[in-house]
Amino acid sequence: MRIKEMEHTQRPREKALRDGIGTLSDAELAALILSSGNKQRTVDQIAHDLVRQSKGFSRLTDMTLEELMQIDGIREAKGLQIVAALELSKRAMKARSYMFSIESPADVAVWFEMEYGVLKQEHFVCVYLDTKGKIITHKTLFKGSLNASLVHPREIFKEAFLQNAHAILLVHNHP
């Protein structure tokens, strides 16, 4: 069924305006971002395929533009809309992570996942904090192989001195 054929109150845009964006189903949210279908497929059909192909959005952040374009009805423009929406969300989450103080290892883990995501190579990252525990900056000082990374203390402390850091957090991943 085309959006225009839906009852006015059940259309994703109207439902979001009336009840809030959080009330939309995954497919309705995808349809709202995609905004339109094409001659062969409705936006609702494309949105349902997107949800299914991304396994309920769990793989969406890992999907490339080319993978998105393999979904019938998604070409370059719609694929870029999806990629842009994901990038906007990622940047908003990163910006928000700098507003809070790091008070526990869990805070570091959440920040690291937001900032670096799932990496396929070992990264050794230094996070430099001010006196209130807020992040001044962070640097990937060393990139290793699949399972190793060489670290030298001189580089860690040099950067801490240059940043006038009060504290240093050393973080690395295990790909």
Rank of each mutant, 00 (worst) to 15 (best):
Q70K: 14
L119F: 01
E159N: 09
E103H: 10
I3Y: 03
D107A: 02
T131F: 00
Q10E: 10
Q163V: 09
R18I: 02
E115D: 14
A31D: 07
E155D: 15
R91A: 08
E7V: 06
M63Y: 09
K120D: 13
R52D: 01
L146R: 10
Q10D: 11
D130E: 14
A30C: 13
L119E: 14
E28R: 04
L162W: 05
R13M: 10
L129E: 05
G117M: 12
I136K: 09
V83C: 00
H166F: 12
L170H: 10
S101P: 07
P12T: 05
I156D: 05
N147P: 06
V151Y: 11
P175C: 02
M6Q: 05
R41I: 00
Y98K: 06
M6C: 03
T23H: 07
Q121Y: 11
M99W: 03
L162N: 15
T42H: 02
L17W: 03
K134T: 06
V110I: 15
H166S: 14
Y98A: 11
A47L: 01
G20A: 14
R2D: 06
E122K: 05
L150Q: 15
G56L: 10
T140A: 13
A27D: 15
L50I: 08
A109D: 11
K94N: 00
K158S: 13
K134W: 03
L80I: 11
I46H: 00
L150S: 12
I21C: 01
K15N: 08
E28A: 09
D19G: 05
V151W: 12
D44C: 02
K55A: 08
L32P: 12
M69G: 15
T23K: 13
I21S: 01
S145P: 06
S25G: 11
L50A: 10
G144Y: 02
S104K: 04
I135D: 01
D107V: 02
K134I: 05
S36V: 00
I46A: 00
E76W: 03
I168N: 07
K78C: 00
A31N: 11
L65P: 05
